[in-house]
Amino acid sequence: MTIPLILDTDPGVDDAFALALAVASPEVSLVGVTTVFGNVSLGSTTANALRLLALLGREDVPVAAGAARPLVHPQARLSSAHGSDGLSGFAHTLPEPTREVDPRDAVTLMRDVLVAADRPVTIAAVGPLTNVALLLAAHPSLRSRIGRIVVMGGGLDGGNITPAAEFNLWCDPEAARRVLVEEDVPVTVVPMDLTGRCAVSAQWLTALAETSEVGAKLVGLTPDYLATYRRFLGWDGMVLHDAVAVAEAVRPGILKSTRFPVDVECSFGPARGALVVDRRLESREHLGVDIALETHVEGLREFVFDRLGALGQAD
């Protein structure tokens, strides 16, 4: 029995790989894509999502636009890693979508999916958590219909947008705190500490491009992102943060998690947006969130490659 999945996303190069992985995974049924500001503006993230679904042959999946800004304070800046359009300047190489954005907003689409589902729904949230925070605030009675929220975000040992904060949580710390701290809903956090260890090489990307036209198109979106990560990693590769989180959403347990109490720093000091994890003692209570700390790295890379490599190939 497949798991209904909503992907809340801000495409984004690694988001593109994450969306493709969701489409390629028979364990889940992708029932909706909701977009949020983040790597680029909401208009660009929404357009990118529509184009990516056209590439993947899944224009039946509704795409609803969500929050264009954080809950409280304006976003300080966009990411520079993904290029001007979010896809290294190559969004135009994707097919023109034939389906328009859904007339519903993201929260309404999420609500409708949760109400209609005959089993708990997984939400994979791989951008700023604004849409998810709004959903939980507006429709608290639907918490029980959420099987799990898998969040790509946070860093236990520092950040990537500031010394303390990872980009997704930094974009909207107040929303992140609502989802991770204030709500009683099952959450698995996939932090950049783990996703960074799962980085893929340029050779991995070259091999993926040779599997199919879809693989080649995905790899064709990576130049700006790859250039950024060459500097960070010190070798020729890049980090598929969001695809690692979606791997856990579609195959629970592929990442090994431990439950800890957490908080999110919402002050305007240098630690704004930081994920604060109390690692002194694992949480034995219902409080806290599951934090993915370990995986079989080569197995994870192989899993993602095999799924993405099968896209677009003849049956």
Rank of each mutant, 00 (worst) to 15 (best):
T130M: 03
A91Y: 11
A209H: 02
R77A: 15
G32H: 05
G159V: 12
P74H: 11
V246C: 04
D8N: 14
V126A: 05
E27T: 14
V304H: 03
S80M: 08
L114P: 08
R280E: 10
D118V: 12
D8W: 02
G273F: 05
D236Y: 12
L136D: 06
F260E: 07
M238A: 14
P270S: 12
P70L: 01
T35N: 09
C266V: 15
P163H: 07
V289K: 04
R284P: 05
F260Q: 02
V239W: 01
L136Y: 11
T195F: 09
V200M: 01
T122E: 00
C171H: 05
V189L: 12
A227C: 00
D118P: 00
R307Q: 09
G159L: 11
L281M: 14
G299C: 06
A106Q: 13
D306I: 01
A314P: 00
T46H: 10
D278I: 08
V40P: 04
S44D: 12
A65Y: 09
E183W: 10
V31T: 09
Q203G: 04
I254F: 00
E182I: 00
D10W: 06
G66V: 03
V262Y: 05
P95T: 09
T93L: 00
A68S: 15
D278W: 13
V72I: 14
D60N: 13
Q313S: 11
A64T: 09
S84M: 05
R148M: 09
L53I: 11
G43Y: 11
L205D: 02
L19C: 08
D184G: 00
P223N: 10
V239Y: 04
A117V: 01
A91M: 03
A310I: 06
V179N: 04
A314K: 09
L87M: 15
R284Y: 05
I6V: 15
D290W: 14
I3T: 15
P252Y: 11
R230T: 02
G127Q: 02
A310Y: 03
V214C: 02
G32D: 01
L50D: 13
A202C: 06
T93G: 04
Q75M: 15
L218D: 00
V107H: 05
T34N: 10
I149D: 05
E96Q: 14
T211N: 00
R259G: 10
V132T: 15
G312Y: 02
V250Y: 03
V126Y: 03
R148P: 06
E182Q: 14
A64P: 08
V113S: 00
H241L: 01
P223K: 13
A91D: 08
V297R: 14
S283P: 11
L42W: 03
T130E: 03
T188A: 02
F37N: 10
L233V: 13
G309W: 08
T93K: 01
I291Q: 07
C171Q: 07
R178G: 03
S84I: 15
V150S: 02
V250I: 14
R284T: 13
F37P: 07
F232A: 13
D60H: 12
T206K: 13
G12P: 10
D85R: 09
G43M: 06
P70I: 04
W170E: 05
